[in-house]
Simulated assay, not measured.
Amino acid sequence: MTASPESRPSLRPAAPAAGTASAKAPFGTVPNVVGVHLYLEQEGQVLMGLRHPDSAYAGGSWHVPAGHCEAEAATACLVREAYEEAGLVIDPADAELVHTVHMVERPDDPPRVQLFFRAHRWEGTPRLREPDKCVVWQWWSAKELPEPTVPYTRVAIEGIRAGRTYTELGWGR
């Protein structure tokens, strides 16, 4: 005999929805924002986009394709953002975590964990899909990044090239 769907116990534990009072962090902890970044390198060149001058963050600066995790895994976010921003198709199995930046930019901002993934393979040629956020995609020498480059992005790229996997920024203030 099979139980009806209504009478079966849920196989997933009940979890409070994000943003509800019962989903608050334990006392003394602060939630961190998680960002994902796509590090594409070919023949010593790194793909970077020039952020729109009116962008809420780092307008007029160079940055790699990136975004914030929503209710999704980091690799799912990476795949989504790569396609939304630049029309690139990436299989999550082809993404490798190569650098993490744990940072605080300003005292009143939440801490951020910035995950940089290298895609070993991808499909497509970078194209502008969000012209209100990025005005051009361009390949730059990984040794000579353009000015201005978002500071934590520069530090991450330098770390990747040096074989370092972790950087902390802004915690000493």
Rank of each mutant, 00 (worst) to 15 (best):
M1D: 12
A3W: 03
S4W: 04
P5Q: 02
E6M: 10
R8L: 13
S10Y: 02
L11A: 10
R12T: 11
P13L: 10
A15S: 12
A17E: 13
A18H: 11
A18S: 12
G19P: 08
T20I: 05
T20R: 07
S22W: 05
S22K: 09
A23L: 01
A23I: 00
A23D: 13
A23G: 02
K24Q: 15
K24H: 14
A25D: 11
A25R: 10
F27N: 14
G28H: 03
P31H: 08
N32S: 12
N32I: 02
N32A: 14
V33H: 09
V34C: 11
G35W: 00
G35K: 01
V36K: 03
H37Y: 13
L38H: 09
Y39Q: 02
Y39S: 01
E41N: 08
Q42D: 08
G44F: 03
G44K: 03
L47F: 04
L47W: 02
M48G: 05
G49E: 06
G49K: 06
L50C: 11
H52P: 05
A56F: 08
Y57A: 04
A58I: 00
G59P: 05
G59V: 07
G59H: 11
S61C: 13
W62A: 06
H63L: 12
P65A: 08
A66W: 05
A66M: 14
A73V: 00
L78C: 07
V79A: 13
R80H: 14
E81R: 14
A82S: 15
A82H: 04
Y83V: 00
E85F: 00
A86D: 02
G87V: 10
G87D: 12
V89N: 00
D91G: 09
P92H: 10
D94W: 07
A95W: 07
L97F: 07
T100H: 03
V101M: 08
V101P: 09
H102I: 14
H102F: 15
E105C: 04
R106H: 15
P110T: 05
P111T: 01
V113E: 13
V113Y: 07
V113F: 06
Q114Y: 02
L115A: 03
F117T: 05
F117D: 08
R118P: 03
H120S: 15
R121I: 01
R121P: 01
W122T: 04
E123K: 15
G124L: 07
G124Y: 08
T125K: 11
T125I: 08
R127M: 12
L128A: 06
R129F: 06
K133N: 12
W137D: 06
Q138M: 05
S141E: 05
A142K: 08
P151F: 14
P151D: 15
P151G: 14
Y152S: 10
Y152G: 00
R154C: 10
R161E: 09
A162E: 14
R164I: 01
T165W: 04
T165F: 04
Y166F: 15
Y166R: 14
L169Y: 05
G170N: 05
G172M: 08
G172E: 15
